[in-house]
């Protein structure tokens, strides 16, 4: 019984991982690929690990610990990638078109470069 439930959970997880990879191919630009690459893989990994935990109950604690690590680190790494992409946007624009209806961050940075002192700049919220 446990085997069956666990197998279905793991199957659900792999479907989300599959959707993530379809999204990678279909999305038009870097940021949108990241959207699918972050979210779908997070839930996909969670379901997969919990499914394994259900199949082998003695592993469940370890699997939940792994889920915790995935949930904590996945958003941090995608944030770092998105930030790096935005910093290198001039180079990215040469490779392919980035689709952005509005870019408040670039506007804010332009405004800050015009101002004599760059007051804003302490974005150090990434220490845990």
């Amino acid at each position: 019984m446990n085997e069956t439930i666990g197998a279905f959970l793991a199957l659900g997880g792999s479907i989300f991982l599959l959707l993530a990879s379809v999204g990678m191919l279909r999305m038009p630009d870097y940021y949108n690929r990241m959207q699918t690459g972050t979210k779908a893989t997070t839930l996909g990994s969670i379901l997969f690990l919990v499914g394994l935990g259900v199949m082998r109950p003695e592993w469940l604690g370890k699997m939940l610990l792994l889920v915790g690590f995935v949930v904590l680190t996945n958003p941090v790494s995608s944030h770092a990638l998105a930030r790096a992409a935005h910093n290198a946007r001039a180079k990215l624009d040469k490779v392919g078109k980035t689709v952005l209806a509005v870019d408040a961050l670039a506007d804010a940075e332009d405004a800050a470069t015009d101002a004599p002192a760059r007051a804003a700049g302490n974005g150090e919220a990434e220490h845990a």
């Binding site: 940021y31 959207q35 972050t38 979210k39 904590l72 998105a82 935005h86 961050l105 804003a120 302490n122």
Partner: peptide
């Protein structure tokens, strides 16, 4: 910031103070 990244259709690109 992490919650935003994991919720529908949003990713935190940069944080500057409270923005």
């Amino acid at each position: 910031a992490n919650s935003i990244t994991l919720t529908p259709g949003t990713i935190t690109v940069e944080t500057k103070g409270d923005t």
